[in-house]
Design a protein around this nucleic acid. Structure first.
Lengths: 144, 144
DNA sequence: GCGTGCATCAGGCAATCCGCCGGTTGCGCC
DNA sequence: GGCGCAACCGGCGGATTGCCTGATGCACGC
């Protein structure tokens, strides 16, 4: 089980989001017979690529909004900005990245208002040139 | 659906680890009939407490390079793209977001070559209009 | 070429499971 | 008591599953 082909990847893709789908439907979606599909799934399970099937349990507490702040700096690196960012409790993760952007900041806030305030605070930090905000509408895939 | 009783919690507990279990077996484990169990599960699903069922996908090999792929789609939403993305074991998280972008895809790969191949694969997916890649240089802040 | 072994696939059968329905029980309320 | 309602149980027909047999494609060695 070194390399998975496109069919294997299609199986993983569908099962990772619809784990309770009947084998027959899965077979139809990937264009194989039911028995062949079952064999592939069994192989993927035994190879450890499918570790199990989990219900995705919603959180009991509501009102948590997550967002990505894409930050461009005037000069990089910028320790000052990182220090300031670390001061916000709603900041969950900050990654320095290559390319057009400089920082990807992941935040979790209680409301749109809180997000807006945070956004303004970050945008006004010394050395922040540009900032675009993308609110997470839905977490489509989440692993490990 | 404010307060879930002990039976509901037992259902969530079992399904969160064995999502593909037959309703009859689940019913036996919690001490109810199959139809009553099905009703409870349906209620939990409709209440949003069970958001879905996902296969737990393992990784082929441990990678050390992480990156963000910022994806713009031609039409949204796009189930096909999500299915395909979920098929790549190096894809760790996918978020639908508002704004200029449509998807933020977080990946972990073994090498720059692997990232390049993945990037090409994703860029060529049906319905993907634009794709920009930001390699994570350093994880500056990481919480919970 | 040609047989062998192996991996992968399709189709069929009996057993099981699911969606749906009617019927029962328990309980609060007027 | 009589009523409404929520939760439960059991059963039916159709769908799905596990398991089997057999067909196909392909690499390998002689």
């Amino acid at each position: 089980m070194q390399n998975l082909d496109a069919t294997d990847r299609a199986i993983l893709g569908i099962l990772s989001r619809e784990a309770r789908i009947p084998m027959k439907s899965l077979a139809g979606r990937i264009g194989l017979s039911r028995s062949a599909t079952t064999e592939r799934v069994t192989r993927l399970e035994k190879a450890g690529l499918i570790r199990g099937y989990r219900a995705d349990i919603g959180q009991l507490e509501e009102g948590q909004i997550e967002a990505f702040l894409m930050v461009t700096l005037r000069r990089t690196p910028s320790l000052g900005v990182l220090d300031r960012l670390a001061g916000f409790t709603s900041v969950r993760r900050v990654s320095s990245v290559s390319g057009q952007l400089d920082l990807v900041v992941e935040v979790r806030v209680a409301s749109i208002n809180a997000l807006n305030e945070l956004r303004n605070d970050v945008a006004q930090l010394e050395n922040v040139e540009d900032l675009t905000t993308s609110i997470v509408l839905r977490r489509e895939i989440e692993r490990s």
